[in-house]
Nucleic acid binder design. Sequence first.
DNA 1: GTCACCGTTGAATCAGATC
DNA 2: CGATCTGATTCAACGGTGA
Lengths: 374, 374
Amino acid sequence: MTTRKATAEAPALPLNQILAGDCIEVMNALPEGSVDLIFADPPYNLQLKGDLHRPDNSKVDAVDDHWDQFSSFSSYDRFTQGWLRAARRLLKPNGAIWVIGSYHNIFRVGAAMQDAGFWMLNDVVWRKSNPMPNFKGKRLTNAHETLIWASREESAKYTFNYEALKALNDGVQMRSDWVLPICTGHERLKDDNGDKAHPTQKPESLLHRILIASTNPGDVVLDPFFGTGTTGAVAKMLGRDFIGIEREEAYRKVAAERIERTRKFDASGLEVTGSKRAEPRVPFGQVVERGMLRPGEELFSIGNRFKAKVRADGTLIGNDIKGSIHQVGAAYEGAPSCNGWTYWHFKRDGKMIPIDILRQQIRAEMEADQRQQH
Amino acid sequence: MTTRKATAEAPALPLNQILAGDCIEVMNALPEGSVDLIFADPPYNLQLKGDLHRPDNSKVDAVDDHWDQFSSFSSYDRFTQGWLRAARRLLKPNGAIWVIGSYHNIFRVGAAMQDAGFWMLNDVVWRKSNPMPNFKGKRLTNAHETLIWASREESAKYTFNYEALKALNDGVQMRSDWVLPICTGHERLKDDNGDKAHPTQKPESLLHRILIASTNPGDVVLDPFFGTGTTGAVAKMLGRDFIGIEREEAYRKVAAERIERTRKFDASGLEVTGSKRAEPRVPFGQVVERGMLRPGEELFSIGNRFKAKVRADGTLIGNDIKGSIHQVGAAYEGAPSCNGWTYWHFKRDGKMIPIDILRQQIRAEMEADQRQQH
DNA sequence: GTCACCGTTGAATCAGATC
DNA sequence: CGATCTGATTCAACGGTGA
């Protein structure tokens, strides 16, 4: 357990702990603007009428716990508005939230999120690869749950590790529908009687993807409906800090033991494929200053349809067009924008070479300098 | 065109016609309790800001039509409550409704449906096999839309052709996620300029499945946002009666011509199902997400000459080389390509085991899930 | 006729830093 | 705050062309 140091205006943040109590009260006691991500799996407001039996007459162990009973939509809405408001207060300006639910509650939750000022980024479908069938044959197999990913506000610069998720998906852009198995087998926690410790334990694979997507190592992740602590366990594995809030003593106990058993991954495994946007910017002028291209040298467009000459200040001059490598490229192509680094080529030994090669050389030198300074 | 005969209290029902005007007014002029099913594709209230360009600089033809503009959430909510109330009045007591939407509007619509007294049966995810990508890499590919299927009231004895849907799904119980392509090719209607006649035309396959699931031949299906008439065309094919309501003259014209061209199916010549599924692709990232290999764990090349570490996003890191299991293998071998699944091994009890074993385990689980549903 | 290749397109809340 | 500038970014399917 750790705490992040208190300042004059804000009390300390209780990191990697499970806090007891009502989540709204507990959240309101924490300092505002202090959390990077919230993952919330609120009660589903399931309206089950009587017991459900399988065709063989065995009873389905349904969610009928007292914490999931709400007398009406409006009382559920008040509950939802309350915890969403407290959650939004806790988030940093660039923070984000994930909420999971089913058709029983997710529409009310989603509308309340929009009303509270959250800005939707995606809705994500968790497509269960092994759902419970619909035994009565009266409806479709309820084979998915819905997640909503939203930033605290429209202007937020939210975290999204695009390249990492693309890597997770074998090199193609990750979609809004995720196929993952439900939580079963050894991962499913049991109580002392051998029954499932929590009726709706989420799979660690789901949290793994969420945390890789929308947090960085060292971020603070809060889960106001902690349950058996899947969020905390995966956060620990991935080197994120967590704050859990859970009302039920029994769940807190199971979660604490679970997280105690959990081990953090190697630091080397936590690094993730980065984005090109994060690489240092290299002005084209440096290429000229360093003599990699000489003033007066000709550059050729991709496809060799246009030419332009390098000038000493790192601009180009073509037919009546002067400007940066990007501006001249865009003008020639009649395009709204153009990446000059990949558009322009120079000639060496009769071969056309993209000028981006030169930028890569400069970046490699910069990295070498970095290492030398250590 | 036909009309169902008028009675003392109710005027005639204008079957297989496209009615002009505002859908709320037109619905209120029709006799209550007269319709078996409603399919509604209301405006989504997209809130698009500037232009969007693809990486090749072509401009995306966005939905910027006047009918999708609302000044605020509350004005959209009033619109939604209005048409839902009129729709519910029209439905027979055992009637049902389908509404389709995206994350921009579906949560508000779903909450309004519950508030209006509709009883949710399923939410259904239309997983698009060929969605538009996220061009800027800022979010997940928005690869699905959500449908809500609800009965007029909780006690309704709604229509559900369970066996027909099971047959449509190769004998396996139909799930709540449907993989269908978007509407392209010859099915996509064009205007006289060769541009798309409607920005959001839905595929006939989607309506086909909906009407097979929740109507019987001779049922009356109403679509208050008729557009280019997909609902009417599929209803005609399947021997259902339709009522379309559409405000825009241009859409009514296209829809009328389309339905005129459409032919009812032979009673005999019905289904053409049964496509072979290719062996499912398993991203290596799933092996990590599912905890079969831990981030930081070492993999060994075939022949044990090279090593690399697993990262949390399913990439490998070796000596200065990062990338997919295939890329790092190819780099080490100096080969143009490499099958990472057979190249890399992990160590268990001192033995080297190819990671392909893990892929086989995942595939076996996926197949077992299929069988379980029989 | 076949196949490889290329251009086009789809309900999208799609940039970020610096001046 | 706004204006300006750099430069990062896409997947599947369909249709047409030409070898």
